[in-house]
Design a protein around this nucleic acid. Structure first.
Lengths: 144, 144
DNA sequence: ATTCTAAAACGAAATGATTTTCATTTAGGG
DNA sequence: CCCTAAATGAAAATCATTTCGTTTTAGAAT
């Protein structure tokens, strides 16, 4: 499990530092997403010296390399979670308790109904946004 | 058109102030989303006294009441755009030129292919996130 | 048209999450 | 066991967004 994380870090081209491993261990044991500051507070028990920027940096880098996932939250703060599902899928995130649950299928309208049944929760809203480059920008090599 | 906006504001239960109307006029004439600060700078030509907080407040209130839409941007800054389409639909937003385009259908995988064809752009990523309350929180009246 | 009042707008200052800087320490290949 | 690039900490900066207390205004009532 620990070696598992070290392996994942190596594959991501990142050094397996104790703090990175600790972050992954904490998040792997959670069903909920966490904020950088929360993780920092919890990690201070295990490290006498630990800077908040280090937590921010590592979380961002881990998300960048796909080891962690980032939550898009209405309050626009950063949250991260660990998801071992390597298949293409989506998540149902609870704005209240922060639990993250996998969603297998992928059709919005049907999706909301299905979520209500499978996870027993209530979908209040959904965010579907496609990001990319429009045809005009494609022609300009990505410039507006 | 102007009366149209005044009407929309009235329906939203908001006073039709010159600054709100100006915001709607500016955004209606745009195919791209705009940041509060950009709108503020452009509006200063027309108002000798205009606070940036006023722009922020109005944009948020207009989005809250559904007159405007808010963009969820990777850089986590706020952007808004005007969309007159009252039907349920989604948007393709260009991260480069900020153009916002309607997307009629609603199935992700097929969606990305379709977008490539209909808008001629390239989908680099998509955000699909369902927000709501999980079953546990439902039982606790929305508390974790 | 004038008055009235709640809502809206104001500038200045505060906020606070996130980032940057840079000197120091560490992981891990050789 | 060394060496070098990468990682880290502390402090300070950033900067979009929000708050505060006050003044102004839109629009209903007169």
């Amino acid at each position: 499990m620990n070696g598992n994380h070290a392996q994942a870090l190596k594959e991501a081209g990142m050094k397996a530092t104790p703090k990175r491993l600790a972050i992954l261990e904490m998040l792997e044991g959670e069903t909920a997403y966490a904020s950088p500051e929360e993780l920092w507070k919890r990690m201070r028990d295990r490290f006498d010296r630990l800077g908040l920027p280090t937590v921010y940096r590592n979380l961002e880098e881990l998300a960048e390399s796909g080891v962690l996932s980032k939550v898009i939250h209405p309050n626009r703060q950063l949250y991260y979670y660990f998801c071992s599902n390597r298949e293409h899928h989506h998540h149902f995130v609870c704005l209240s308790c922060r639990k993250v649950q996998d969603i297998p299928s992928c059709g919005i309208e049907a999706l909301e109904r299905e979520v209500s049944k499978t996870v027993g929760g209530k979908v209040l809203s959904h965010i579907l946004q496609l990001n990319g480059l429009c045809s005009g920008c494609m022609e300009n090599g990505g410039m507006p």
